[in-house]
């Protein structure tokens, strides 16, 4: 579906699903496109002199600002670090820009910045520049944060859609849907609220270690944020024209997250993560890669969930618990709680 001139931006255009893709391709790329941008990778790969760097940016508008497992400050740092890490880079420095709504309590701002600083320090990343704007009440929702980041490309890293081949295995580094369901439950005030915890965390340790140990056997990495695992896997099949087969029984899901998603009628595969990576690895090194993931604190529940196949169509297929099969579609962009 092409966007028409009189169309308006819907919330779903920001949801990381089909509508986001459409907006990027038909409006943004057509206005700004160039060789690097058009690759649509998590971070841009650039050569400065003899050095390969990765450069990326991300904005954070999460509501509520504080949630179980994190807050907008930690998220803003981890999110950009993760975009660099899955691009095969070691994160070096970040910028951090604030758009603040008039009336925000200073204490809230302090807490957010403290949390951002702590997350950056843990990753040995410095926040080296920034900007502050204040807008009148109502023109923003409390606080929005943008972070940009630069990372040094790891010498052994050679990841990209074009590296992916039939037979490669797909690893997810832990349970899915934790961040999204935590945020949604906060907003909707469901009974699960207190038992859910966002997975908000940097994935740089895992990404760095698997690249270091397995080099170009690591074909591709991505953090499945908005649109969840479904969006990431669909992007892989769209970019490679290969198929994907995943097994429901192998996908790690926290039972409370599953219960909350079931109650609201959400497909867990579409729910956002903020501390996970999808890793595509050669079949020979898949087991080794899994062991490395599991040796990391946030990767204990990592699992091989499926593989790339030479299908007749670029589709993601799920083998269900009862051994049925179904297509996993690209999410639309906005999960709506169902009526009953």
């Amino acid at each position: 579906m092409m966007m028409a001139d009189d169309d308006k931006i819907l919330l779903a255009h920001g949801g990381g699903g089909r509508l986001t893709n459409e907006l990027i391709r038909s409006v943004i790329i057509s206005a700004l496109g160039n060789y690097t941008l058009s690759k649509l990778t998590d971070s841009a790969e650039l050569k400065i002199g003899q050095t390969d760097i990765c450069f990326t940016t991300d904005s954070f508008v999460v509501k509520p600002l504080f949630f179980n497992g994190g807050d907008i400050g930690k998220l803003a740092v981890c999110g950009t670090i993760n975009d660099l890490a899955v691009g095969g880079a070691k994160p070096l420095v970040l910028s951090l820009s604030l758009i603040i709504e008039e009336g925000l309590e200073l204490e809230v701002l302090r807490k957010i910045l403290h949390s951002a600083a702590k997350a950056a320090k843990q990753e040995n990343v410095e926040i080296v520049c920034g900007d502050t704007k204040v807008v009148e009440a109502g023109a923003a929702d409390k606080i929005f944060i943008n972070t940009s980041g630069i990372g040094l490309k790891l010498p052994k890293a050679d990841v990209g859609f074009e590296k992916i081949a039939a037979g490669d295995k797909i690893i997810i580094t832990g349970t899915i849907g934790d961040h999204g369901m935590t945020i949604i439950s906060h907003r909707e005030g469901t009974k699960f609220e207190s038992d859910l915890k966002s997975d908000c965390a940097p994935v740089s340790e895992i990404c760095g270690k698997v690249i270091e140990a397995l080099g170009d056997d690591i074909k591709f990495m991505r953090d499945p944020t908005r649109g969840g695992l479904a969006a990431t896997l669909n992007e892989i099949v769209n970019q490679t024209n290969l198929g994907i087969e995943i097994e429901e029984s192998q996908i790690p899901v926290n039972p409370t997250v599953r219960a909350a998603a079931d109650m609201l009628g959400f497909d867990i595969l579409n729910i956002a993560n903020e501390g996970k990576a999808v890793i595509v690895v050669s079949p020979q090194k898949a087991q080794k890669c899994l062991e490395i993931c599991q040796s990391c604190e946030i990767g204990k529940e990592a699992a091989i969930i499926g593989q790339i196949i030479q299908g007749t169509e670029p589709l993601v297929e799920l083998i269900t618990m009862i051994k049925g099969r179904r297509i996993v579609p690209m999410p639309y962009g906005r999960e709506l709680p169902r009526i009953c």
């Binding site: 051994k323 049925g324 099969r325 179904r326």
Partner: peptide, 8 residues
Amino acid sequence: FRAGLRSA
């Protein structure tokens, strides 16, 4: 549909 029941 989600469970792929028809195909099973």
